[in-house]
Design a protein around this nucleic acid. Structure first.
Length: 518
RNA sequence: GAGCCCGUAGCUCAGCGGUAGAGCAUUCGCCUUUUAAGCGAGGGGCCCUGGGUUCGAAUCCCAGCGGGCUCACCA
């Protein structure tokens, strides 16, 4: 702790943390503050799930900064939930189809790498979180249900069965009301999660009866024999896990309200809450896996750094943001800009700098020495996927020495830029063919270059380009350069040709030029 | 129907009490060689409208108008 006035820090995670601090400070003997994020492992983790963990962790980080509370981040996987639809991104959809209505954790993983289908998805999430070095406690719903860790709350819910059901029923349509039950029995025979009407039999001992084939069968609500319908499940978790803070997408605002009402009949535990806006695609439509629009975590990390992804997630969580490929270079550049601006900032300003939040206050000492968009331009100009060539050109471009640590960062983003170039820039380049006069000039250029020895300096190249230009376009030298750029790169401007040819190498230069006059 | 968010340069957006900003686009200048996918300079704004709070509002509050999304099946 120190004497910074945190109320003056505008960064949203601090404002959330202050709100939370005020709340938990009123609780007697409060020492540990628990944050929860929920995950439904019915498919590979969605970028929204990931954003939620990231953002929650930022609030957690701020709370630690402004208070003496210990903190705990739970990522809760609702893996006892039933599979309802086969996700499109799973490699074995036909095999999965046979397991509709089965608990996710009881479905085999047909990729044969994990213990179950849920385990596979859980591990995908964990690997993303580990990649970002989060400290979290992973909790499997199945584990908690089966090992009786929710029993106390389950009995309490049964005890208040009527009150709770009266909260839910008015929100449902008539047809649904008849089949609705807060308890979903897990069939002893088939292991399916059943959505059937139930009757309360014995509140004290936790016995209910559910209808199957026109007769009622008794079962316990405890010990993993029943799962809770999700809004009740959510409320139950707040009590069972003592949750103090949880975020959710704006689609769940009504559910949060409902779960809060239900919580009054469990242990009255309602977390401090923030709702965030959903991500949209380029056209402004909600991104979803089934549509395949927007971006996945993997796709972003293919073309951009993890820091740039964090930065994107950090910015304005309460605004609906378009998430598509153009966001990546923008975010990469913004990161570097913020990094540079950080260097001379006062402490309060640093707390407002997104980098402080992204790096959980351990801001690295180095970053890449060139803007990503700039690098993309160079890669495009070079039209190569050779790391070393690109790096050499960057060094010429930057002029000054790059220190070893910055160079490491540069290496990383060169790999990213190559992939970005291949997929988004290269397919859109359209070069034009030279006219007769231009062909003549290029032939002349080829002849001159061939006549030189193999070690040609940038200056020599530049001299030749000028020499040929002056001979063939004596009145409009400018046009000669524009023509060359259009023919070589499909653009009206380009890199200084001398240094470009030099880095590119004689053999490739000759090939490039010959290719234009074929 | 209810809720959430957004209306700022031509476009995409940032700023969120103290002189109106960025990127892209546009206009102009710059290649006989000192970074040309670059650099320099410029144009372009009733910050949706109306009220309120304030010494001061793009920013905070209220009302309206316009747009988008979400929920009311499942999670």
């Amino acid at each position: 702790m120190n004497n910074i006035d945190y109320k003056k820090v505008k960064a949203w995670p601090f404002q959330e943390a202050l709100k939370l601090k005020n709340r938990v400070s009123k609780i007697n003997n409060k020492k540990i503050v628990t944050f929860e994020t929920g995950y439904g492992p019915s498919g590979a983790p969605h970028i929204g799930t990931f954003a939620e963990v990231l953002r929650t962790n930022m609030v957690r980080n701020c709370l630690e900064e402004i208070s003496d509370f210990s903190t705990n981040l739970i990522t809760f996987s609702d893996d006892l939930d039933a599979l309802r639809k086969v996700p499109e991104d799973y490699p074995f959809p036909d095999k999965l189809k046979e397991y509709i209505d089965y608990p996710l954790s009881m479905i085999p993983d047909f990729t044969e790498k994990y213990e179950s289908y849920a385990d596979r998805n859980n591990n995908l999430l964990k690997s993303f979180l580990n990649n970002f070095k989060f400290d979290y406690n992973f909790i499997s719903s199945t584990d908690y249900y089966i090992n009786g860790k929710f029993d106390q709350q389950l009995l309490k819910i049964l005890d208040n069965y009527e009150s709770i059901i009266n909260i839910i029923l008015p929100t449902l349509r008539k047809e649904r009301r008849e089949s609705y039950s807060p308890f979903l029995p897990i069939c002893k025979k088939t292991k399916k999660v059943l959505q059937v009407p139930i009757k309360v039999v014995d509140k004290k001992n936790g016995v209910i009866a559910y209808r199957e084939n026109n007769q009622y069968k008794e079962t316990l609500v405890t010990g993993g024999s029943c799962k809770l319908q999700w809004k009740i499940d959510w409320a139950m978790r707040w009590s069972a896990l003592n949750i103090d803070y949880e975020m959710n997408g704006k689609d769940l605002i009504p559910s949060f309200d409902l779960s809060s009402q239900i919580a009054n009949f469990i242990e009255n535990k309602i977390p401090s809450n923030m709702s965030y806006e959903l991500f949209l695609d380029e056209k402004g439509e909600k991104i979803s896996k089934s549509k395949g629009n927007g971006l996945s975590i993997d796709e972003w990390l293919n073309y951009g750094s993890s820091e740039s992804l964090s930065l994107f997630m950090y910015n304005n969580p309460k605004r609906a943001k378009k998430l598509y490929f153009d966001c990546i270079p923008k975010s990469m550049d913004e990161y570097r800009k913020l990094f540079i601006s950080l260097q001379n900032q006062s402490i309060t300003k640093i707390l407002d700098n997104p980098l402080w939040h992204i790096h959980q206050k351990n801001i690295p000492t180095n970053t890449y020495p060139i803007d990503f968009t700039n690098l993309l331009n160079l890669v495009t100009a070079l039209n190569t996927t050779n790391n070393q060539t690109i790096k050499d050109f960057v060094k010429i471009y930057l002029k000054e020495e790059i220190n070893v640590l910055d160079e490491k960062e540069l290496d990383k983003i060169i790999l990213l830029s190559i992939k970005y170039y291949k997929n988004f820039i290269f397919p859109n380049i359209s070069k034009r063919k030279p006219d007769i006069k231009e062909s003549q000039a290029i032939k002349k250029l080829l002849f001159e270059i061939k006549n030189l020895n193999d070690e040609i300096s940038a200056e020599d190249y530049q001299n030749i380009v000028f020499k040929v230009g002056k001979e063939i376009f004596p009145d409009d030298l400018r046009k000669w350069f524009i023509s060359l750029y259009q023919i070589l790169f499909g653009s009206d401007s380009g890199p200084r040709l001398g240094s470009f040819f030099n880095v590119y190498g004689k053999k490739k230069v000759l090939f490039l030029l010959e290719d234009t006059i074929k």
